[in-house]
């Protein structure tokens, strides 16, 4: 059986979401630069990017509602519209998490080197990238692999927290900065996992257990 071609209204929704993804990718690069090079002035840029992402999320939801009214989609088309609404929210939420890191970078303004934080961030970002690739490529198997990899970020986050909890010499600001940032990265990775769940639902019609 030939793969089903997406109807035009879905193609437009996917185009919109790719643009949204590009914004989130760009915001992600800014934060990578910020964490790598201790940049403290990213808040304004990230706020603008995330406002744009939020507007695009609202537009995507409007496009989905219009698609439901005009085209009354069923089966995989219905699942695609449902998934688009959720994934656009995930993208917007990821962007807001990135802005949160920019805010923390600016507000704390301290030198807090933690060798595990940047790798954790990059792992989380890789998950987001792969989850979106799987989503746009309608690849349920890749999506399932991403869900499994969420544990890597969870363990990394826990390791950072445990290390600070056990440390004899503690700097309050750095504990807060690294702990909160690690927590945000962990949440971002959760959203990559949610996107992957939507991809599996979109492709197979089955919901997989979140646990």
């Amino acid at each position: 059986m030939m793969a089903l071609k997406d109807p035009d209204y879905l193609v437009r929704i996917y185009d919109q979401m790719r643009e949204m993804y590009n914004i989130v990718e760009s915001a992600g690069s800014e934060i990578d630069d910020g964490l790598s090079n201790k940049k403290r002035n990213l808040k304004t840029t990230l706020t603008e990017q995330c406002q744009e992402a939020q507007i695009m999320e609202e537009q995507t939801v409007e496009m989905c509602i219009e698609a439901m009214i005009r085209h009354q989609p069923f089966a995989r088309d219905l699942r695609a519209v449902s998934a688009a609404m959720k994934v656009s929210y995930d993208l917007s939420r990821i962007c807001r998490y990135l802005r949160n890191i920019a805010e923390i970078l600016e507000e704390f303004d301290v030198e807090c080197d933690d060798p595990d934080l940047l790798p954790l961030y990059r792992e989380g970002r890789k998950m987001i990238h792969l989850s979106l690739e799987a989503y746009f490529g309608k690849d349920a198997k890749a999506a399932a692999d991403i869900i499994k990899s969420d544990e890597v970020v969870d363990r990394g986050y826990e390791a950072i927290l445990n290390r600070y909890a056990m440390a004899e010499k503690k700097s309050g600001s750095c504990i807060l900065f690294n702990g909160i940032t690690a927590r945000i990265i962990e949440r971002m990775a959760d959203h990559a996992s949610y996107i992957s769940h939507e991809t599996i639902y979109l492709v197979t019609g089955r919901r997989v257990d979140y646990r």
């Binding site: 089903l4 109807p7 089966a75 197979t204």
Partner: peptide, 17 residues
Amino acid sequence: MFKAPQNPLTERYITGR
């Protein structure tokens, strides 16, 4: 059936293919 039909033919029909 309207969310996730089992048969590809059903899927093609209800999605207007």
